[in-house]
Design a protein around this nucleic acid. Sequence first.
DNA 1: TGTAGCATGTAAGCCGTTACATGATTGA
DNA 2: TCAATCATGTAACGGCTTACATGCTACA
Lengths: 180, 180
Amino acid sequence: MGQELPVTSYAVLGLLTFGDELTGYELKQRADRTLRFYWVAPAMSQIYTELARLSDEGLVAPRGEGRRTTYAITDDGRRRLARWLEESPVGFPVLKHPVALRLLIGHLVKPAVTVAMLRSHLRALDEEILALREVRASLEGADAPGQPFRHPSLVADWGLAHFTQERATIEDLIRRLEEE
Amino acid sequence: MGQELPVTSYAVLGLLTFGDELTGYELKQRADRTLRFYWVAPAMSQIYTELARLSDEGLVAPRGEGRRTTYAITDDGRRRLARWLEESPVGFPVLKHPVALRLLIGHLVKPAVTVAMLRSHLRALDEEILALREVRASLEGADAPGQPFRHPSLVADWGLAHFTQERATIEDLIRRLEEE
DNA sequence: TGTAGCATGTAAGCCGTTACATGATTGA
DNA sequence: TCAATCATGTAACGGCTTACATGCTACA
């Protein structure tokens, strides 16, 4: 016990710090709803792998027999997360942006192809913004300083600002490409 | 020949569409300088793996014997890239943002810890902005519509806007956290 | 009664990293 | 002449995905 865990382990563990205990299945849903915006949405099978590992390390405690096992974070888990936050190096964000990648080599295709791609990305962005707004709305009422969803709501606001700005940039790019 | 390649293959291949031919070593440098901002900076060994694969598929042509082999994109490679741009689904960006992830569970540590992390990220951002500005500056003079670095400069501008906006958001977050 | 959602896993395999290994060339 | 940089690979392995497999429960 005690080796360095992959960041995704901490991410999953972090999802259990909001006062409830969840099944693997529910954890996957929470990850899809929130974590996916700034980390990843691990595959179902990956969630179970993480839960097994976290369990082995005593960072979560399974409860319930047979089908439908829920997991709660332990005191050790909470301490371990806090230590991770305090001591481990943070690292710079990694962005894998297929739209930017394709724009880079836009000289290989007709401008209309690039513009169509950007428009399609705009639609995808709108959907993401909508989904994130819903998440943000669901945190309202418990998002003041000191309340349980304070930090999640800060992150959600950040995400919304990010998407909104990207939306504006894409629109600007379309404009510039169409002028040519 | 002709199976779907991983996106990173296309990314590496794309770096060879700017009129020059490079060694694996030089390709790595170019990736570190530019690709890393919106895709990844593949490890040296990965570059060589990609070059072997692209070579097998006839998308790049090696030139030069023994030590120091340069690679140029072939006509097939250019066609393949164009087809990829036109036909394959684009996919939404994936962001792995350790700062956002840690902010999410900020309730586990003293506010000062979170603020310190954000400040440190601010410094990292400044370095990235500086590096990207240099890249952008190096494209000047060939960045007008129709010129070879038109698209790379569009992407660089986008990246700068993105980092600048993130910088402002982080400063705002620090302000909000310090008010408490 | 049957279909969608809940729930839990195993196996194979790809992508990519780190570590290791080797040697030539250039310039202080 | 010695260190930094250029240059090219191989091996082991970790993280994560996709595909496969199984079965219960709620509800229309």
